[in-house]
Design a protein around this nucleic acid. Structure first.
Length: 940
RNA sequence: GCCCGAGUGGCGGAAUUGGUAGACGCGCUGGAUUCAAAAUCCAGUGAUAGCAAUAUCGUGCCGGUUCGAGCCCGGCCUCGGGUACCA
């Protein structure tokens, strides 16, 4: 008897797993797509194009976790949907494969970063392939391939060979500038350049030595070498861009960052500041990202003015957004790094000043920030002259003034600026009140609706009028002029690292020169990935014969930053294998802008700003025909992990269950989530997990179990809460995982990962399978024409799903599909016409299963070649509508009425009902609102 | 501090233009089937009161507009993100 039941048991189990054999189905279709090149796209001018792009990943050693595919699944659904709607869809994938982790690993192990990168890329590819994406892999790019980074160098060359003309407001060839210099010098040139450019004539230009000419041109080039204050990270041995520094520490690795003056390559992104700001308006991006970019660019309109000095020929130039408060100026403050510090410091103040400046330079950015409340400064001993009142005003040095913003000097208006007020208060400086009827004894007044007072020709004017008037007067008197200032700094473009793009640059007599046309540098081999003993970057280790090109005295030792390759990769996909051009004009004209870009919001000011900059530049030099890379962008929210914790009693090896943890002094320890099921710990597994837990003791709860605590936090290896897609694909299949990731909630939202609900989605796919199979698991559909009810279900679904995908509401589509199957199952409908439409609707989400059903329905071609069903209103026309009837806004009962009744008829019918009389309870209806096919509301 | 965004059952979430709040799924409860389980199917499931019909309350809090507010307006609270001496 026992034996017999075991056999039955085995048979039924076998049978139930046979129902929907996702493993076979998925591997079958993976092979089919590969062998049939189903996802290969070519340019087809007869079809409208659509470009769907994912932010390409950095292939890290940890592989993909469940958060990565979220965006890829959404973009894949959209790409498939667009294709079914007749678009020619470009949907590529590649790797941002230069970067620090591979190099850090290389330093530790000596293994070439190219080797680890290759292994990681292959792992990513295996994982991606299992998820059924419709990527056209023939277009794959890797930023670390020389066939790719050669074109990154090409763009750098173009930047080097260009300057920014402010008259035309675009980049132009540097040769044009040279001819202007030869004809008329630089006096009339209106171009973006370094601050320290002096005026020269054509004659002077011609008299310049070669080296002088090159140095001058560098001040105009869009890619230029200059001495600048940089964020130096000693731990990483490299400089970092502003967006790579967070709270005074490196974003990668979290190491301290200090300010250092170094000769570095920079890109003149500030030339594009205004266009980058202005063009944000036309982008379909979230307001928050646009806002972040706006703040980062930080445009402020004001005036620059010169203050002359009492005992010195020089002037101090300041930038102010409030020239209307000029009469409130009672002192000046310059940054400790300001070039006039030494000249202005008088003998008796010498010691204090140099001490203060030294202290300030030692303070890291972070210390300066945490010191905001602590006002500090020192007097130089010198005085400037107020341009209007001719009064003597003291010049101070303080680190609340930043060298890198504006001119590194401010005119202090203590009555109108809180920082100036604090400073004046601390050091007993004069506070002049220039606001009418405003008390400034407790704090400064920054109210823009104030009236100016005590200010000569500005008296009684509003701030707005005073601003205008002040600038006019400043300009007529030649003290200064209207000026627009940006917070945006030029982007430092060199890194003292190995694993990045080499520069197509060599040096002769310490002057940089570009390699001639067609020549590009391959990353040379080195013996170690560390700086040299002299502190030069790793590339200085390469011997002369290791370089594929070697010219001049030496090659450039720096490499490009991580964002170089990612600033233009979306263009290369269009023409990924073109050996002659970055991208052919024909192809870039066809594919154009990215129509939908999906990725994280963490690149708001890095990648997303630099890509916009490079796109504008490439547009200026006529390489492409559009100015913005990404038309519409969706930022997917992070999938957070659910960490589990055990509680160890301090100084023991005893662990106490969650419920009883407060009875002891414990510390919380992350435990691997694979050892926890429903918050219950697998004690044996835990003991074997780490050797130090082998002899652990446990205090269990009342159910004799060990219950873990939990918290929702970012997924990371160190928190043992990483969920890989691999296990889930193994247990439930890729189709289920795809649907489940979408079902979790709106794409943009942050959400905790929880596998509890996944079988709900899996059951839905099984239910659909059962709908078209009989009890022996034979495919079984009816060829009868569907009836009205069945068509109605179908067309409701078509409408809902089409609308939802169009508004990127990926999660609600899943429920619509579920509702549809539920209703079809209730109608016992397996009519092939209906199933056929349903398979198409399902296919963007569950491509493997849909292909299988599609084939079983007798189709010879892939379902990707099908046509999205067209919604037909007629199927939804109803004779009746069920009205909710409300009294004073409270719904009391429903009433089914023919849809052809007019308002008066509806009103009459409702009022005659017994139920209405009951709810009126003797009261007179004051008003009746009837909204046809919506609601009836009786006010009484 | 300033600038964005979000707060809805036990949980993830739905409600697209102001019109039946809680779709769909999970979980839970009961039932059918089964020797038993798995799977499947049926019913129930916001709170409170009631055998029930039903009633009252209910979308972070307070107030407003409206016949009608999760949605619009004003003022708060909480959480998440960005930014921080920017002159």
């Amino acid at each position: 008897m026992r034996k017999y039941s075991l056999i039955i048991n085995f048979a039924t189990n076998l049978f139930s797993t046979m129902v929907y054999q996702f493993k076979n189905i998925e591997s079958k279709w993976r092979d089919y797509w590969k062998s049939h090149s189903t996802y290969k796209e070519s340019e087809d001018s007869t079809k409208e194009k659509f470009y769907v792009l994912d932010m390409f990943p950095y292939p890290s050693g940890a592989g993909l976790h469940v958060g990565h595919p979220l965006g890829y699944i959404a973009s894949d659904i959209f790409a498939r949907y667009k294709k079914l709607n007749g678009f020619n869809v470009l949907h590529p994938m590649g790797y941002d494969s230069f970067g620090l982790p591979a190099e850090q690993y290389a330093i530790q192990t000596g293994q070439h970063p190219a080797v680890t990168t290759k292994i990681n890329v292959e792992r990513y590819r295996t994982q991606l392939d299992k998820l059924g994406f419709s990527f056209d892999w023939d277009r794959e790019v890797r930023t670390s391939d020389s066939t790719y980074y050669k074109w990154t160098q090409w763009i750098f060359k173009k930047l080097y060979q260009s300057y920014y003309c402010l008259d035309k407001n675009k980049a132009k060839p540097i040769n044009d500038l040279i001819s202007i210099f030869e004809k008329q010098g630089n006096e009339l040139v209106n171009a973006c350049c370094d601050d320290d450019v002096f005026i020269f004539s054509a004659l002077q230009w011609k008299a310049f030595s070669e080296s002088e000419k090159q140095k001058m041109l560098l001040k105009y080039r869009l890619a230029f070498l200059s001495q600048t204050w940089v964020n130096w990270c000693p731990e990483l041995g490299t400089v970092l861009a502003n967006d790579e520094v967070k709270d005074g520490r490196s974003e990668r690795g979290n190491y301290p960052v200090e300010q250092k003056r170094m000769r570095q390559w920079s890109l003149r992104i500030t030339a594009y500041a205004d266009r980058l700001l202005h063009d944000l308006d036309n982008l379909e991006w979230t307001d928050s990202i646009k806002e972040i970019q706006k703040n980062w660019i930080g445009k402020s309109v004001g005036a620059s003015l010169h203050f002359s000095l009492e005992k010195n020929q020089e002037t101090i130039e300041v930038f102010t957004t409030r020239p209307d408060t000029i009469f409130g100026v009672s002192f000046m403050v310059i940054a400790p790094e300001h070039s006039l510090v030494t000249k202005l410091t008088t003998q008796e103040n010498q010691q204090l000043v140099s001490q203060y400046c030294k202290q300030a330079s030692l303070k890291s950015e972070r210390d300066r920030q945490s010191d905001v409340k602590n006002v500090s400064g020192v007097f130089t001993g010198s005085y400037a002259i107020h341009p209007f009142t001719n009064k003597k005003i003291p010049v101070w040095i303080a680190d609340y003034v930043l060298a890198s913003y504006g001119t590194g000097a401010v005119m202090a208006v203590p009555c109108g600026d809180q920082r100036d007020w604090d400073f004046a208060n601390k050091f007993g400086l004069e506070i002049v009140n220039i606001f009418k009827d405003v008390d400034i004894s407790e704090k400064a007044n920054d109210d823009k609706s104030s009236i100016i007072n005590n200010s000569d020709f500005l008296d009684d004017l509003s701030v707005k009028d005073a601003l205008k008037r002040a600038i006019e007067e400043i300009e007529t008197r030649g003290i200064g002029k209207k000026k627009i200032n940006y917070r945006l700094r030029d982007a430092i473009f060199s890194r003292q690292r190995y694993w990045g793009e080499p520069f197509p640059i060599y040096y002769k007599d310490d002057i940089p020169y570009l390699l001639e046309e067609g020549k590009y540098v391959d990353l040379p081999p080195v013996d170690k990935y560390l700086p040299t003993e002299q502190g030069e970057p790793p590339l200085a280790r390469a011997k002369k014969e290791d370089w594929n090109v070697f010219e001049g005295d030496r090659m450039e030792y720096n490499t490009m930053p991580g964002w170089a390759g990612s600033s233009w990769y979306f263009l290369r996909y269009m023409d990924a294998n073109n050996p002659n051009e970055l991208v052919s004009k024909e192809k870039s004209d066809y594919w154009g802008q990215v129509d939908l870009y999906i990725g994280g919001a963490e690149h708001a000011v890095g990648h997303l700003l630099y890509s916009r900059f490079w796109t504008k530049f490439l547009y200026d030099i006529d390489c492409i025909s559009f100015q913005e890379p990404f038309k519409k962008m969706i930022n997917q929210g992070m999938i957070l992990g659910r960490s589990s914790f055990v509680y160890r009693i301090n100084d023991t090896n005893t662990f106490v269950s969650f419920e009883k943890r407060k009875e002891h002094k414990t510390s919380r320890i992350h435990v691997d989530i694979s050892l926890v099921d429903n918050d219950i710990l697998d004690i044996e597994g835990f003991k074997n997990w780490r050797s130090d837990f082998k002899d652990a003791d446990f205090i269990l709860n009342d159910n004799n179990q060990y219950c873990c605590g939990f918290e929702v936090e970012k997924m990371s290896k160190s928190k043992y809460n990483v969920q890989t897609p691999d296990d889930l694909v193994e247990t439930f299949g890729a189709d289920t995982l795809r649907m489940y990731e979408m079902f979790l909630g709106p794409l943009e939202q942050f959400k905790p990962w929880d596998t509890k609900g996944i079988n709900g989605v899996h059951n839905f796919l099984r239910k659909f399978w059962r709908l078209v199979h009989d009890e022996q698991n034979n495919f079984c559909v009816s060829e009868q024409d569907p009836d009205k009810k069945e068509w109605k279900v179908m067309h409701q679904t078509i409408k809902k799903i089409t609308d939802d995908i169009d508004r990127y509401s990926f999660n609600t589509v899943v429920s619509a599909l579920m509702i549809c199957v539920n209703e079809l199952a209730e109608l016992k409908c397996n009519k092939s016409a209906i199933i056929s439409d349903f398979a198409i609707l399902l296919s963007p989400y569950a491509p493997h299963l849909s292909e299988e059903i599609w084939q079983l329905l007798g189709n010879k071609e892939s379902i990707t070649q099908a046509q999205w069903p067209v919604f037909n209103e007629q199927y939804l026309v109803e004779d009746n509508f069920t009205y909710p009837v409300s009294f004073n806004g409270k719904m009391r009962f429903t009433l089914e009425l023919p849809t052809n009744l007019d308002k008066a008829q509806i009103e009459k019918t409702v009022l005659e009902l017994d139920q209405t009389i009951k709810y009126l309870d003797g009261k007179e209806p004051k008003r009746i609102i009837v909204v046809p096919k919506k609601i009836v509301n009786i006010v009484c």
